[in-house]
Amino acid sequence: MSQLTVPTMAEMTANGETPEVLFWVGCSGSFDDRAKKITRAMAKLLTKAQVKFAVLGTEESCTGDPAKRAGNEFLFQMQAFTNIQVLNAYNVKKVVTTCPHCFNTLKNEYPELGGNYEVMHHTQLLQILLDEGKLSIEGGKFKGKKITYHDACYLGRANGVYEAPRDLIAKLDSEFVEMKRSKAKGLCCGAGGAQMFKEPEKGNKDINIERTEDAIETNAEIIATACPFCNTMMTDGVKNKNKEGQIRVFDLAELVAQASDL
């Protein structure tokens, strides 16, 4: 496989170029081994669609989402102001991100602090690229495969994005099956609000197990996710249920990339 070419904002600016869109990778997408695959799938898709994109690379820093939701407003705003300085210095207009938490924070919480960008979630951008014909899905790799979709809270309930991910699954020509709790009624994977980084409080079950059971009930072969944290939680849930042979967890970017033979 050919080496990915991922230009940074610094390089592009040095060459006097302006990207159409900044790909905000996020901490999970940068450091988590599983999530890095999602990042690479997205980068390949952007390249294939000939979208002129760039990343911040080593200039990117946590949006501050987990700090804010854990109550550390100081740390959040330190991160926010620093990131906004960087983004504004590069005159960024459009941002796409594979993480709904980054998406929500950049889109809803940065404007008041001076960061105004058009922020898209990657499922929204992929939907546009497919609709415009800049990407295409051929060969029917997923034809007849049963896929279910787990709504990420920060994409769905928090921002009302329910259709873009479902539209992508429809475009895969697969057999889509909804979980009993979906869209506004979707159950959290258990990672939000900085829970990802701590042990759960005492209870009688882990939230990701409860959610994985919803997914298993659908008899789907693939659980599609749109958030790196949901991906981790659902993957762990499937492992816990010893269903790794039957069910696989993929991000929608990975599914679209696989369907496009990338």
């Binding site: 940068s30 890095k36 990042t39 690479r40 080593t58 820093s61 987990p66």
Partner: peptide, 21 residues
């Protein structure tokens, strides 16, 4: 987050490693 801009203890310099792997 304060020290290296991520919830985990990874150096900021490694942020773009995903592109090379």
């Amino acid at each position: 987050i304060e020290n290296n801009g991520a919830p985990w203890q990874f150096p900021m310099a490694d942020r773009l490693n995903w592109a090379k792997e």
